[in-house]
């Protein structure tokens, strides 16, 4: 018997917390895939470190979502017993690691956003979210510094590293727009002072990203077509494979405690 998916009452606040939890969990999971396989031991340490930060963020946000929802779900039920259509993360974070340049560009685009986002969220009227934001902001600042340094090294390194970094930027660019999108439910939270409007961060994000990309002698694509769908469960094909691995034990041994 396979374990059935849980049902989630996605009130605006539950959905809000789950979306951010899923961003952190999926990106953290992707980073953990590198463990033992990074280009240098120092990077093995750094990628695992960032993965752990993100996993920690996911757990706090999931735990909060469970509390707000009040239906007996918990961090593990959210992580292990929702299928691909129930996941609410950004398309960007589920994109495969690819080479080191792709991993770093994905991290850079996200961290440049998360750094601003969590800093702004420290002013949330929701005390729990403000506390999570304060912790996440410190971590995101480091993730941004680390990935920015690599973007510059790779872009301004060798011909090969430049080409790989540029390819990664070109391929991942279309997944950045989703970070700034807001739906009606979230609009209500913004109006209530619980969430902040990510659209207000866009120009600062673009300034940070453009600055580093220029320093790296790389270029941002001209296209402004942006993919969307992660926030409502319309994912890329990659997420299902990630989840089948992530959830394998929980799905194989229903109800067991680990």
């Amino acid at each position: 018997m396979a374990t059935a998916n849980i049902e989630v009452s996605e009130t605006p606040l539950v959905l809000y917390a789950l979306r951010r939890a899923d961003d952190a969990l999926i990106l953290g999971h992707r980073l953990s895939e590198w463990c033992g396989h990074a280009p240098a031991m120092e990077e093995d340490m750094a990628l695992a470190n960032m993965g752990l930060d993100l996993l920690g963020q996911a757990r706090e946000l999931d735990t909060y979502a469970a509390k707000v929802e009040g239906r007996g779900n918990d961090e593990d039920k959210f992580a292990y017993l929702r299928d691909v259509r129930q996941y609410r993360n950004l398309l960007l974070v589920e994109q495969p690691n690819g080479d080191f340049a792709r991993t770093m560009v994905r991290q850079f685009f996200y961290a440049a956003f998360a750094d601003l986002y969590w800093r702004a969220m420290m002013a949330s009227s929701d005390a729990t979210l403000a506390a999570i934001a304060a912790k996440s902001e410190k971590e995101s600042a480091y993730h941004l510094r680390h990935s920015s340094e690599w973007i510059v090294r790779l872009g301004d390194g060798t011909e090969e590293s430049h080409r790989r970094a540029q390819n990664a930027i070109d391929d991942l660019w279309a997944y950045t727009g989703e970070m700034f999108a807001v739906d009606d439910g979230e609009r209500g939270l913004i109006d209530a002072g619980i969430a902040i409007d990510p659209a207000t961060l866009k120009s600062r994000w673009l300034k940070t990203v453009t600055g580093i990309v220029n320093e790296a002698t790389l270029a941002l694509p001209k296209s402004d077509w942006m993919q969307q769908g992660g926030r409502i469960g319309s994912h890329s094909e990659h997420l299902g494979h990630l989840l089948s691995e992530l959830q394998s034990l929980q799905r194989t041994f229903p109800g067991a405690t680990w």
């Binding site: 752990l52 996993l55 757990r59 292990y80 929980q250 680990w258």
Partner: peptide, 17 residues
């Protein structure tokens, strides 16, 4: 990537690190 709970996943990742 297959650790059976988030707590176990974090502990294992930290251990291997």
């Amino acid at each position: 990537t297959r650790a059976p709970s988030l707590r176990r996943k974090a502990a294992l990742l930290a251990k291997v690190q």
